[in-house]
Amino acid sequence: MERKLATALSGAALLLLVFGTSACSISNSSETLSNSISSPFEWSSDSSDSSSDSSAGDSAYRQDVSDYTVAFATGDGDLDAFRSGLRLLSERRGVTNWEEDGLTLASIGQGLNEAGWKPDAMRAFAQELLGANAPGLEALQAGYASIP
């Protein structure tokens, strides 16, 4: 039985090789008519009736920003570099001005907490990051406090 299976598999593998087929998907999703109206992302996940998918989108973004913040907080990059990376992340999420986006700011706060920053250091950093943006400072600190 095993020998038969092995022979069949060998044949299949040889076919793959001989005909030059590619195991694995080639990323070219922008070339479909389906994308003329909207990407699958927007249809099925970002704005579907399913609140669980929408919440998964927020959750993934929160994780991305928080992970990026941890990388910054435990590395030696400067604040401008951090802001530059935030811009890229938030634009992919459809946000151009992350300083006004509560989810982004709360996620930064979470990342600082995960990186082990003390409250004083967090507050000083938030001040340097956001200046006098009071609602922004509040959102960042709330994100920090959301992790026990």
Binding site: S29, S30, E31, T32, N35, S36, S38, S39, P40, F41, E42, D46, E91, R92, R93, G94, V95, T96
Partner: peptide, 11 residues
């Protein structure tokens, strides 16, 4: 021709 632009597109 149709311009295709999947994903979130900020202006």
């Amino acid at each position: 021709a149709l311009r295709l632009a999947p994903g979130n597109r900020v202006p």
